[in-house]
Simulated assay, not measured.
Amino acid sequence: MITIRPARVEDAEALPQIEQSAGLAFRAIAELAWLADGDNVSVERHRALITAGACWVAADEKDRPVGFLSAGIEDDALHIWELDVRLDRQGQGIGRALLERAVADARRRGVAAVTLTTFRAVPWNAPFYRKFGFRILEDAEIDGRLASLLGDEAEHGMTLDQRCAMRLDLSRAGTR
């Protein structure tokens, strides 16, 4: 049984290993396989995001994290920084449950949208988020904050033609 709960500071130690495990899925995509060996978000950054109060973990029956969603309030949006589920727990609806919790929290906070940057064509990236009503932002729709994030990602080897910014407008999105 999986429980979705707010992340606690002590969970931060486990989150880089979950991110590393989730990243192994990229080995199945030749041009992105290098991501499986990439850097993970630091424990310190996880602690800061958890303290800010917009992070959730999926915990197993022994309350051990097996997945997480880290986000933060940026302007008038809840911005998803990272959503990862351990490789051996993927395909069980855990990512969906984490995303649903984050969207519900964003609605509760009264923000206008949920945003993120991700890969356009990776099945568990943009196509996954589209199922929830997220849309890919094009050109003029990309605000300065998201454009800056995409630029930073490009500097780290993720080309702009592969990446996209996405947005779920909460005023128009139906509940799930």
Rank of each mutant, 00 (worst) to 15 (best):
V57Q: 08
A48T: 14
A113W: 08
F26P: 08
I18W: 00
E10S: 11
R107C: 00
I136R: 08
T175N: 00
R130F: 05
D105A: 13
A112W: 01
L99S: 04
I94P: 02
I2C: 01
T51F: 02
Q17S: 02
A59C: 00
A14M: 12
A52C: 09
S148I: 07
R108D: 08
E61T: 09
R86P: 01
V111F: 06
G23A: 03
V114C: 09
A126M: 07
A173C: 05
G95I: 05
D161P: 06
R107E: 01
D152C: 06
D39H: 08
I29Y: 15
H79T: 15
A14F: 02
H156L: 07
K62L: 12
G93A: 03
R45K: 10
A28V: 04
E155I: 02
E19W: 13
G174A: 11
R96V: 09
L99P: 07
E141W: 10
A112C: 03
I94N: 07
D139H: 13
R107Q: 01
I29G: 02
T3I: 12
H46F: 15
G133Q: 04
D161S: 15
Q20S: 12
V57E: 00
Q20E: 15
A173F: 00
T115I: 12
D60R: 09
V103C: 08
A147I: 04
L78H: 00
A97P: 08
G93K: 15
A33T: 06
R89T: 01
A25Y: 04
T159P: 12
H79F: 14
A173Y: 11
S42A: 05
P16Q: 12
D169H: 10
